[in-house]
Computed example of a mutant assay.
Amino acid sequence: MKERIEQGLAALGLTPPPEAAAQLAQYGTMLLEQNQVMNLTAITEPDQVVDLHFLDCAALLTIGEDFKNKTLIDVGTGAGFPGMPLKILEPSLNVTLLDSLGKRVTWLESVCEALSLDKVTCLHARGEEQAHQEGFRDSFDFAVSRAVASLELLSELCLPYVKVGGKFLAMKSVDSGDEVDRASRAIAKLGGRLLPRVDYEIPGTGVTHRVVVVEKVSPTPKGYPRRWARMQKSPL
């Protein structure tokens, strides 16, 4: 995995720390081992883990945002994507990995320990509840999500975490145009403003994905995010 990671990062034009490729390879090994006893990923081939997880996440570092010494929360991180690869590739990031499943959070803590990562908080919480807590609301430079949910729901979950002037980065497919259009009203209501979306190709795969970029221009009104059931029943 390490050699494929190095080749892919070079193809993306990234120059990460010398230890990053080895750390990502170790993370990939731990992911595939743990996946035998816990449902972490449907991708089980090492090369595809590199391409469709690591390099896909790494592409966020190529879209023109400055991540150095910033704070970032990964809402619904699952097996750590995209927050963990971003932390490994940009060690100055202060990262919070938030997930509602305690077993996943415990495993992520073990990965951080094995890779000797600092400035990473693995948080077991529901995204729609934690966003109302002091120190989390309107507090992060970046919120990121690779979760499989509509942009309307993701925006309500994630934008409350972002400070004014910060960004919400949603990883989506290139056929998400209609979804983005539908979410524009919700984004405005939550204090956000859509910026030009960025499409990128994962090296060596021919696969193109998209980052939807939302700038936080005003504080999110009180009361958002709502309870998850309410959000699903009545999207903004």
Results as ranks from 00 to 15, higher is better:
residue 8 G to K: 03
residue 10 A to M: 05
residue 13 G to C: 08
residue 16 P to K: 03
residue 18 P to W: 01
residue 20 A to R: 01
residue 22 A to L: 01
residue 22 A to Q: 09
residue 23 Q to Y: 00
residue 24 L to W: 06
residue 26 Q to C: 09
residue 26 Q to F: 00
residue 27 Y to G: 01
residue 28 G to E: 01
residue 30 M to E: 14
residue 31 L to N: 07
residue 32 L to R: 04
residue 41 T to I: 04
residue 41 T to K: 04
residue 43 I to P: 03
residue 44 T to N: 12
residue 44 T to I: 10
residue 46 P to K: 07
residue 50 V to S: 06
residue 56 D to F: 00
residue 56 D to P: 02
residue 57 C to L: 08
residue 59 A to F: 10
residue 61 L to A: 06
residue 64 G to K: 01
residue 65 E to G: 00
residue 68 K to V: 13
residue 70 K to I: 07
residue 72 L to F: 09
residue 76 G to H: 06
residue 77 T to A: 06
residue 79 A to V: 02
residue 79 A to M: 02
residue 82 P to E: 02
residue 84 M to R: 00
residue 85 P to R: 01
residue 87 K to V: 07
residue 92 S to M: 01
residue 96 T to M: 06
residue 97 L to E: 05
residue 103 K to S: 03
residue 103 K to Q: 08
residue 107 W to G: 01
residue 108 L to R: 07
residue 120 V to E: 00
residue 120 V to C: 00
residue 124 H to N: 12
residue 124 H to Q: 13
residue 124 H to A: 06
residue 127 G to R: 05
residue 127 G to P: 04
residue 129 E to K: 12
residue 131 A to N: 07
residue 132 H to N: 10
residue 133 Q to K: 15
residue 134 E to T: 11
residue 141 D to V: 01
residue 148 V to D: 11
residue 153 L to A: 02
residue 155 S to D: 04
residue 158 C to R: 12
residue 159 L to K: 08
residue 160 P to H: 13
residue 160 P to C: 11
residue 162 V to E: 10
residue 165 G to M: 11
residue 167 K to I: 01
residue 171 M to C: 02
residue 171 M to Y: 09
residue 172 K to N: 12
residue 172 K to D: 12
residue 174 V to D: 02
residue 174 V to W: 00
residue 177 G to V: 11
residue 177 G to K: 08
residue 183 A to G: 09
residue 183 A to T: 10
residue 185 R to K: 13
residue 186 A to D: 07
residue 187 I to D: 03
residue 188 A to M: 10
residue 189 K to L: 13
residue 189 K to I: 09
residue 189 K to N: 03
residue 190 L to W: 00
residue 193 R to W: 02
residue 193 R to E: 15
residue 194 L to Y: 03
residue 195 L to H: 11
residue 197 R to D: 15
residue 197 R to N: 15
residue 199 D to N: 13
residue 201 E to F: 09
residue 203 P to K: 05
residue 203 P to G: 05
residue 204 G to M: 07
residue 204 G to A: 07
residue 205 T to H: 02
residue 205 T to A: 05
residue 206 G to L: 08
residue 211 V to T: 14
residue 215 E to C: 06
residue 221 P to S: 02
residue 222 K to S: 14
residue 227 R to A: 15
residue 228 W to A: 14
residue 229 A to P: 05
residue 234 S to Q: 13
residue 234 S to I: 10
residue 234 S to T: 14
